[in-house]
Design a protein around this nucleic acid. Structure first.
Length: 254
DNA sequence: ATGGCATAGTTCCTATGA
């Protein structure tokens, strides 16, 4: 099973790239974030025509998540039942006996802001829901844009970023609390090259200069991690014309 | 010290992202 997460920064703009990427990279599950589409405008027919089932929950302008799957999906949950949220950032489905959660964790804007507090509350509620969900689904995968770089080696310039949102202590502690439930960061199960990132600012020629952060992750519950044979970041779509600022992360589970 | 790009909607500027 190949599981993928990709923040597409508007599926309206990026649908051709998603379909192109899928035609070159057939996968079992693709979790999308920042679709920025209300459900009535979601391109379900085009995605189904490409051979994928799809579930989604969205809103206009901001947020929005979707799961594309080669296999049928059941037990669909939209929004964390433990968190009252107007923002559409969470969707879960059971696929081939695996519980798949697609999350667009809040950005947090700046440390100490209202949005930062919202981010921490959101993470706390995610933690609590996952704790219950793991009791029912030992095969659980949490894919998404976490908006957290877990360690300094996930940051192109740790000194410049020190203490900033996306790398602050409380955010990193929240990430470790998720890990503590019984997950592995699939990317770190394997020897990886240095300076691998999943997001680069559109400005400052950041991609060309590899000024990035690794903030998109695939966490696997321990039984799934034991079956994981690879996790890679595919930089190719970030080189295309009019790219998303994020690029796909792919985990393989045998 | 700031903004630098991209997206979407309230457009022909503003808010937001990371």
């Amino acid at each position: 099973m190949k599981l993928v997460t990709w923040n597409v920064n508007s599926l309206k703009v990026r649908l051709p790239q998603v379909l192109q990427w899928l035609s070159e990279n057939p996968v079992d599950v693709l979790c999308l974030q920042e679709t920025k589409l209300t459900d009535d405008k979601f391109p379900a027919a085009e995605i189904e025509a490409a051979g994928y089932h799809v579930v989604f929950t969205g809103q206009k302008t901001y947020n929005g998540v979707a799961i594309l799957s080669k296999h049928p999906m059941s037990e669909i949950v939209k929004n964390n039942p433990r968190f009252e949220d107007e923002q559409q950032r969470f969707i879960a489905a059971t696929i081939e006996g695996m519980r798949v959660v697609c999350a667009y964790i809040p950005n947090g804007q700046s440390v100490g802001s209202d949005k930062y507090q919202y981010k921490l509350r959101w993470l706390e509620a995610l933690h609590d829901w996952l704790a219950d969900e793991l009791k029912v689904h030992e095969n659980l995968a949490l894919l998404g844009d976490y908006n957290i770089a877990p360690e300094d080696r996930d940051v192109h310039d740790p000194v410049a970023w020190q203490g900033q949102v996306l790398v602050s202590e409380l955010e990193r502690a929240a990430f470790q609390r998720l890990i503590g439930l019984g997950f592995k960061d699939s990317f770190r199960l394997f020897e990886q090259p240095e300076k691998i990132y999943t997001w680069w600012d559109y400005r400052m020629m950041a991609f060309r200069r590899n000024m990035g952060l690794r903030i998109d992750h695939i966490l696997l519950s321990l039984p799934l991690a034991a079956r994981c044979t690879a996790c890679i970041v595919d930089k190719v779509p970030r080189k295309w014309e009019q790219p998303s600022d994020h690029t796909p992360v792919i985990a393989t589970v045998e």
